[in-house]
């Protein structure tokens, strides 16, 4: 009992402490690392935001969306247009959130009546339609060549290199988006997302309209996606129809599942995967990048069905199982395959 209390107290302190350590590391990192590392970490922050948006609609509200890349694309194009036309930075950012949000809401007003595969098909339409449209509207988007910009250089009063300045801007915006989303999914709205995902009949009897909740989740997902589009352009300084292609959407879904769906930390881990695995696989054997990342995907899904975020819990489960086995010597090596879920069952009163 006392042990449990100590563990509880430790758990209460370990989260803020961990957050503080991560925050300090994030602030110090760009000062000591190379521009290349800064670029990679900044890219992770960009895709962490994109994955967070996807997580809101798919992980928390349980609605399939294969169109997240379209909102990143729209956000990036709005940012590009704003920059080349000399709009104020804040206005550009707000429009980068607003415009994709409105598009997402309009699509959701129709699509949220559907579910499952039908919903997936409608959301696929966004990148499928968006890519040729982006190529066509070459006055705004630069057509197939894309849009190259040069913006977000450090102001003269800061003694930072381009990569460091962009790192701080992107990571700061990402941190704010994460904080707001974390607050949202923990309270009243988060609970309504979860029950719409789990059981719509119960949602109804709790005074929750599943339709409105789904529209809200899609709208938030596309708004956050648009914000990540702004950040994308800030880091890469280039966008093309490729950004909103269907392939990007699929890779984002894969990264979300690998990181851990329905989890804030999972979005970060998913982004690390999204950025890092192609890099690592490319270093091993550049010609087999796709093969190696596919193998990694299978491995993670097989060992950690809950995604990378469930790793600590999984390790703990394996440890308690081992401890129990050594406490009560079992001569049955066959039960190694037993599902770990069973270990907690002995506690039901």
């Amino acid at each position: 009992m006392a042990g449990a209390l100590v563990r509880l107290r430790a758990a209460r302190w370990s989260r803020p402490a961990l957050a503080l350590v991560v925050a300090v590391l994030l602030v110090l990192l760009p000062l000591v690392s190379s521009p290349y590392v800064n670029y990679q970490v900044t890219t992770m922050a960009v895709f962490a935001v994109a994955l967070l948006g996807l997580n809101v609609v798919m992980g928390y509200a349980g609605q399939v969306s294969l169109g997240q890349s379209a909102f990143i694309g729209i956000g990036a194009y709005v940012a590009g247009y704003g920059t080349t036309h000399g709009w104020p930075l804040l206005l550009t950012f707000l429009l980068c959130c607003l415009l994709p949000g409105v598009v997402g809401m309009l699509v959701a007003l129709a699509a949220a009546r559907l579910r499952g595969l039908a919903l997936a098909m409608v959301t696929i339409a966004l990148p499928i339609v968006g890519t040729p449209v982006a190529k066509r509207l070459s006055d705004v988007t630069g057509g197939s060549q894309g849009l190259t910009v040069s913006w977000l250089d450090p102001p003269s009063w800061v003694a930072l290199a381009d990569d460091q300045w962009r790192y701080y801007v992107v990571v700061a915006i990402a941190a704010v988006v994460f904080l707001l989303t974390r607050n949202l999914v923990r309270g009243r709205v988060g609970r309504s997302f979860a029950i719409v995902r789990d059981n719509e009949a119960v949602a109804l009897s709790m005074g929750i309209s599943p339709y409105r909740t789904k529209v809200l989740a899609f709208t938030l997902a596309s708004t956050i996606g648009g914000a990540s589009g702004f950040l994308y352009l800030a880091v890469v300084q280039y966008t093309s129809p490729e950004t909103l292609s269907f392939g990007t959407s699929i890779n984002l879904v894969v990264a979300m599942v690998i990181g851990g769906s329905g989890s804030i930390a999972g979005a970060v881990l998913g982004a690390v995967y999204y950025v890092l695995v192609p890099v690592l696989a490319g270093q091993l054997d550049a010609s087999r990048t796709a093969l190696l990342s596919g193998a990694f995907l299978l491995l993670v899904l097989f060992v950690l069905p809950g995604g990378l975020v469930s790793l600590p819990r999984r390790v703990q489960q394996l440890l308690t199982r081992r401890r129990r086995r050594s406490a009560t010597p079992s001569d049955d090596p066959g039960d190694r395959t037993g599902t770990p879920v069973l270990t907690s069952d002995g506690r039901t009163p």
Binding site: L184, G187, R188, R191, S192, I195, M206, I208, L220
Partner: peptide
């Protein structure tokens, strides 16, 4: 979850 309809405020 049961408190949903009584709690104030939107997203």
């Amino acid at each position: 979850l049961g408190a949903h309809s009584l709690l104030p405020g939107g997203p």
